[in-house]
């Protein structure tokens, strides 16, 4: 992963935590809304680090743009001041609620750290780096221990199909180190599997209700026939606009339409609620 990616993770993580705390601590709702916008930008940065480029853009457009403009507009419109702001004195339920929140966080952290073992993660990383060295050395000198070389190739792959920095961790370790290239390669591999009909429903990818019946789409809705050929020279697909929209209009088309109906209903409801009198 290198140096810069973790650095930006920590910057965005602490930014998100700090701005979240500011949102619930600030007395004036206007400052709360402004720090919340900063918070959404931090989240967008984290989405980019997770290769979710489309959602990062949507986060900024929809959350940082549309929703927060709505909030700011309402705050300015109401113009709260004086007795409508919260009293600036200590109250006992602040402490009680904070204790409850900390307890909940401790519970969540306990649940996560009972599943993760950072020592195993460190071991896996060290083993991986060692194997990369072995394979690289073998490519240069041709004189290595066969058994060791075979084990290392099984871990990191052949040098000609090299995917930098990939660790296939199993669920209990929750480490999932993978570079951008590795994520995209794995995703394209899965798409091909599904296209060839070799993906099993247990993998959770496009299962049909009847496992014996093949799931066919009209040609206009077919996903990328050969994902690698769509953008020559670049297999960058994971997290971009195209696969997300493909899933929206293929597998998730009914929830998508229901969301549209929900948005329409909420628009009508908001208008009716905000009107002084409905005649």
């Amino acid at each position: 992963m290198g140096f810069w990616e973790p650095l930006f993770f920590w910057i965005f993580a602490f930014g998100a935590l700090a701005t979240s705390c500011a949102v619930i601590v600030m007395r004036n709702p206007l400052y709360c809304a402004l720090t919340l916008i900063a918070d959404f930008f931090c989240f967008a940065g984290l989405y980019v680090l997770l290769s979710a480029h489309f959602l990062a853009v949507v986060q900024i457009l929809v959350y940082g743009g549309a929703i927060m403009v709505l909030f700011l507009f309402i705050i300015m419109l109401l113009n709260l001041r004086g007795k409508n702001l919260e009293p600036n004195r200590f109250q006992i339920h602040y402490v009680l609620a904070s204790i409850a929140g900390v307890l909940m966080f401790v519970f969540a952290g306990w649940a996560i750290f009972s599943a993760v073992d950072m020592e195993t993660v460190a071991e896996e990383r060290a083993q991986y780096a060692e194997c990369v060295e072995v394979v690289e050395e073998a490519a240069e000198t041709e004189a290595v221990d066969d058994a060791e070389y075979g084990a290392c190739v099984a871990l990191v792959g052949e040098p000609d199909e090299w995917v930098p920095h990939r660790v296939d961790s199993q669920i209990p370790n929750l480490s999932a180190d993978a570079s951008e290239e590795a994520v995209e390669e794995e995703y394209v591999h899965r798409l091909r599997q599904w296209k060839a009909g070799t993906a099993t429903p247990a993998e959770g990818k496009y299962p049909s209700f009847d496992p014996d019946r093949t799931f066919e789409l009209p040609p206009s809705l077919e996903p990328d026939p050969e994902p690698a050929d769509v953008v020559p020279g670049r297999e960058g697909l994971y997290g971009t606009f195209k696969p997300v929209s493909m899933m929206l209009v293929n597998r998730f088309v009914i929830p998508f339409e229901l969301t549209a109906i929900l948005l329409l209903a909420s628009i009508v409801g908001a208008v009716i609620l905000a009107k002084r009198r409905v005649t």
């Binding site: 973790p6 920590w10 993580a13 935590l17 680090l49 599943a115 993760v116 950072m118 480490s175 180190d177």
Partner: peptide
Amino acid sequence: WEPTLAHFLLL
């Protein structure tokens, strides 16, 4: 130092 899934879940 390097973020893993656990880091994101904790955050």
